[in-house]
Design a protein around this nucleic acid. Structure first.
Lengths: 210, 210
DNA sequence: GTATTTCCCTAGCGGTCGCTACAGAAAAGA
DNA sequence: TCTTTTCTGTAGCGACCGCTAGGGAAATAC
């Protein structure tokens, strides 16, 4: 059976590329790189680490994936579709924002501790102290986009009458984000004092009534 | 007035050390190093970065602080007493665990976004992807100790009747930690799936009743 | 003054970083 | 077979890493 590892261009126009074919499976190597970046982060994973776990030489890595940053960006895209999509699925499939977030948090608890792969979330951890600004900004944008998605989903429920009209959708979305990635991380990503204060206030309502 | 920058040995036995005194103020240099580590993290802050912001030569740095890791550990201690003590103060001074945590979260919102210094928490961020295991473990221990402190404070309130006896103190403490540093960070620090699931369940109770 | 102690500056150590030039090997088309 | 194309392995580039040897400068003790 023909595997899906050929590129679309190859599969459609030229059944075989001209010269010597590469001697390793690109998808397998990408998955190995993904696990390495997930485990150790962007800066800490050196190119020699990558060539070792991918079991290829450095020139093969650069020919197949560009430079280290391109490889990492491809890894992040792969992570998003393969491991990080449970949140988007929950938001798309559940009938209410509350049900979606509850499902998302439960699945996050499972995913983040699954012994089959590194723990936690690659997008959150791989660039916490990162000396490459473009990489840092790219992941920061992803995290902020997640919070924005929470907020718009909550607003939709408010409009539909599923949540009280006075609900602070932005604060609820930020609390959800905090349970996912932490107050401190958000502060480094540009949240204001007021936004974090609103988050803290609403977080207190989980406490049992005395 | 004599400042407190002399060591105890100097202040008690020899009013003046023998040779040439150092030409910079050790506390000022330490504070500059603290800000650099806080802003950029442990790995990303190079020794040449440090010597530049501290405005001293590399040999002076090594003579005054040992190696880079010793300097960082001293920075973490300084951070704990100067910037990170609001949590301990709240736990010690407030009458109930609930009041203590509420105050702590409000003060965290202020501290983590104070434009007078880098945002967020140094202990949480300075070692997220860290290639020096000892540094990583040291900060991990500090974070887990914080969560343990939350838990014992909540248990004390339960014993005192301030909280219902069926309160899940461990889960409450972990939620508090999550709002501080994030679910994902905790997963990397060894929390189990069940612990994170319990956290997710209790986090849902902040939602307004429909 | 001289001797002693300690510090600062220059210069550079060995090692690793991300990355690549180059030559040979392995596949295709002719 | 022979040429062309592409990949692979060796070997090493310049830059930066954490760190330090060594000589001269600046303070105190005598």
């Amino acid at each position: 059976m023909v595997s899906s590892e050929e590129t679309k261009a190859q599969a459609r126009t030229a059944p075989k590329p001209r010269g010597r074919p590469r001697s390793f499976d690109r998808e397998t190597a990408l998955e190995k790189a993904l696990l390495a970046f997930w485990e150790h982060g962007y800066e800490t994973t050196s190119v020699s680490d990558l060539t070792r776990v991918m079991d290829i030489g450095a020139p093969s890595l650069y020919a197949a994936f560009g430079d280290k940053r391109s490889l990492f960006e491809e890894v992040v895209r792969e992570y998003g579709t393969k491991y990080g999509s449970f949140g988007d699925r929950a938001l798309a499939e559940e009938p209410t924002a509350r049900a979606a977030v509850e499902r998302m948090l439960r699945e996050a608890a499972v995913e983040y501790t699954d012994p089959a792969h590194p723990s936690g979330c690659l997008v959150i951890h791989a660039a916490a102290n990162c000396s490459t600004p473009e990489v840092e900004q790219s992941l920061r944008d992803r995290r902020n986009a997640n919070i924005a998605a929470f907020e718009s989903r909550i607003k939709a429920d408010i409009a539909a009458g599923e949540l009280p009209p006075h609900t602070d959708a932005a604060a609820l979305a930020r609390h959800t984000g905090a349970v996912i990635q932490g107050m401190s991380q958000q502060a480094r990503d540009g949240a204001s004092r007021g936004e974090l204060e609103a988050l803290a206030e609403i977080a207190m309502t989980i406490w049992p009534r005395t």
